Computed example of a mutant assay.
Amino acid sequence: MSTMIKMVRAFTAAAALAVAAPALAAGDHKPHVDRYQWSFSGPFGTFDRAQLQRGFKVYRENCSACHGLRLVAFRNLAENGGPSFSEDEAKQIASEYTVVDGPDDFGDMFDRPAILADRFPSPFPNEQAARAANNGAYPPDFSLLAKARAAHRGFPWFVFDAFTQYAEQGPDYITSLLTGYVEPPEGMEVPVGQYYNDAFLAGQFISMAPPLYPDSIEYTDGTPMTVEQYSKDVAAFMMWAAEPHLEDRKKMGFRVMIFLIVFAGMLYFTMKSLWRNVKH
């Protein structure tokens, strides 16, 4: 009996330590994550095609030197529900990239221009090369980052989020991170090679230098060329990359809900009809 009690106590202590570990590691730092308005929020939200194209422009001209997009194919840029580039535009974009193919008849690998069936090539041949080029830091791939990174809200907020269909924590966090480079508090020393960011989940210090500056990327549609706008556009593009079938999923969910409501009504009236002459 005493052995069982000891085992229960040990398990309880281990569980408590596991729960407390993230808080201890993070210290007193609470990431400052703002909540933004998105066209794709809510049960009927859809992607803004112009915003996705601007976001791709920000990625290609500013982010692609360090961050890959390995799960997205060039043909996806022309598919329904995405940035809505034409097929010719997608082919032109693909031709500007070089991918490794092969082996050829001699057993050698070779470089060639990308085609629609290819995925975006990584900017580095492997993780070690990526770390060597970034002072030991590994730039994450952008394919799923909008779903993998988020400042999760605690109780009771996540309960309300289930009813309000709030699922934009990732884009909110990415936008807050890109706009979160501020001066550190007085007396705080920033380590060499790092930068202060009050939205960074893993602490206040981040290895990535501020990537965006006003007027650094040209928009031709009259959209403001600010850091916040750049950040929101690339975050929306990353959300599409992580969930390209978001619009289809929402449409299917709405249809299923309508079917269930109608089906439940039919079952109710069928039950009333079958049991109308039976005394209860």
Rank of each mutant, 00 (worst) to 15 (best):
T223A: 11
Y219F: 14
N197E: 12
V192H: 11
M208R: 07
E189A: 14
S207P: 04
Q194S: 15
F160Q: 00
Q169G: 15
E228W: 02
T226Y: 01
T179W: 02
Q204L: 12
A167V: 06
P185Q: 09
N197V: 07
M238C: 04
A167C: 01
Y173S: 15
E243Q: 15
E186R: 11
E186F: 08
P210C: 03
M239N: 10
E183Y: 07
F200H: 15
Q165L: 09
Q204C: 13
M225D: 09
Y213V: 03
A236D: 05
I206E: 01
G203T: 11
A242T: 12
P185A: 07
F160I: 03
D215M: 04
G170W: 09
V227S: 01
Q169F: 09
P185W: 11
Y181K: 05
W240S: 06
M238I: 01
V234E: 03
F158Y: 14
D161Q: 10
P185I: 08
E218T: 13
Q169C: 12
E189Y: 08
L201N: 10
L177Q: 15
Y213P: 00
P184F: 08
V182C: 07
I206P: 01
P224D: 06
Q229K: 05
I217N: 06
V227A: 02
M239S: 14
P171S: 10
T175F: 03
Y181R: 06
T164M: 01
T164R: 08
V190E: 12
E218I: 10
V192Q: 14
I174A: 12
K232L: 15
V227C: 03
V182N: 06
E186K: 14
E168C: 09
F158T: 01
A209F: 05
G187A: 12
F160D: 00
F160W: 07
P210L: 06
G170I: 09
M225P: 00
P224M: 05
Q204R: 15
